[in-house]
């Protein structure tokens, strides 16, 4: 069990703090990566690689949007104006449980989705990926 005993919460927080050059206390679970913590795409690459080294869980930048969408085809996820629809919001709620679906209904555009992504969401993603890998091993 390669992941046994690993504290993914701490691993992710540490990776975020180290990559962004901030204190561990600032990388709180509820902080959004691109919003609150001002991470840029190069920082995301750094964070994910640090997580991979510390946890052996490999997540690529290009995996994140795909995982958030949960395999739902684009045309079923958003309407013609790229506003995330009911089906899309229900899917996002699974990966981003903190979001208020009613508040975002009819407003959330596809390019805004990643700005809702928090340190905790990343931790959950890493934990899920680890569990999947373990289950298929």
């Amino acid at each position: 069990m390669p992941y046994e005993g690993k504290d993914f919460g701490l691993i992710v927080q540490q990776a975020v703090a180290d990559a962004l050059g901030i204190d561990l206390e600032e990388a709180v679970p509820e902080a959004t990566l691109l919003g609150d913590l001002d991470a840029e795409s190069i920082d995301l690459l750094d964070i994910l690689f640090r997580i991979e080294k510390a946890s052996e869980v490999k997540i690529k930048v290009s995996d994140i949007a795909e995982l958030l969408q949960g395999g739902i085809p684009d045309e079923e996820f958003a309407d013609e104006d790229d506003i995330i629809n009911e089906v899309g919001l229900a899917q996002l709620k699974k990966s981003l449980p903190q979001i208020d679906v009613e508040e975002l209904a009819g407003k959330l555009t596809a390019d805004e989705v990643l700005t809702l992504f928090t340190v905790q969401n990343l931790t959950d993603l890493v934990s899920e990926r680890a569990a999947l890998t373990t289950a298929s091993a």
Binding site: S41, V61, S62, D63, A65, E66, D111, L114
Partner: peptide
């Protein structure tokens, strides 16, 4: 990064 911005997708799936 500029190419990804010009595509409008960012770092999309499978890229």
């Amino acid at each position: 990064e500029s190419v990804l911005k010009s595509l409008g997708t960012g770092m999309g799936p499978r890229m």
